[in-house]
Amino acid sequence: MTAATMAPTGESRGQRTARIMAEKPVIALLVVLAILYVITGVQDPTLFAPQGIRSVLLLACPLAILAAVQTVCMLTGGIDLSAAMIANFAAYVSANNAGLGPIASLGFAFLVGGAIGLINGIGVGVFRVNPLIMTLGMSSVLVGVITVGIVGDGFLSGSTTILSLVKSVGGGTLFGPIPLNSIVLALVAAILILGLGRTGLGRSIYATGDNESAGRLAGVRSWQVLIAVYVIAGLLAALAGLMFSGISGSVGPDQTNSYLLPSVAAAVIGGTSILGGTGGFGGTIVGALILTVLNRLLLGLETSDAVRQIIYGAIVLALAWFYVRVTGQRAD
């Protein structure tokens, strides 16, 4: 407690840079992104063309929204490992009901996401199940439910043709290099960033993750906060599922699964603490962009998949380490 709080005096330029980096880690992340982008672009010059920029954004937007799921959960010290299965499920439900028109089709998808999130939230918030276990279990349950649903005449055996709205928003172009799905991300980002920073719920989410006992003594009921968080997470996962299906133009029972761990990694690289209490969605978006560019870089390498995996993992670890260094999170 004696890390004194004196005004910074006579700091050198290096110290000043370090302080700005520590206060605004997103700037450091953007620098990393720019460097990575240039390196990848040298190897694959199409990246500097509008089409190349568009392809990065197109893939980064749904990943960022799946990572938003992890961000809100991680801020409370939790995680949502069922996010990918919720996404798959919701995309399936939407396609099945595409015939009922966009409102019903999308409504069902979000209903599924919200309802599964509610169960997660009740498990974590009321019955105090560890979020890792709760959502891992939920993910496993959903695998079973979807499998039962799509075999034979199951309840998911209907049409797998996705809504044309989902297809055009998920895969279309707004103008030049900007895909339409970046509008969805922009909306989600605005809601999340304002919601976390400037609403009572947002403050309660940070408080619950930072120190639950402090919240309790101040009258915050953490179970309410956790239920709200996992419902929001379920809705965001459903949205991510729709956007992924918009890119591929179809639905599959496991099409989002390979994005689950990157969604966690994007949030961590973006500076959200897995222990809760600190971070935000701004960094997560940059994290998702970094991972997408990184993926692109590795795909261009003439090497085996195994080596790509190794490099990918090593770079993610290096980024996480870099983040801690830059923000000085461990200085005390």
């Binding site: 940070y206 408080a207 930072d210 120190n211 006992s213 402090a214 003594l217 603490s273 209490g277």
Partner: peptide, 9 residues
């Protein structure tokens, strides 16, 4: 104080 403080906020 550890019970009442939000250390990272």
């Amino acid at each position: 104080r550890a019970l009442a403080l939000l250390p990272q906020r």
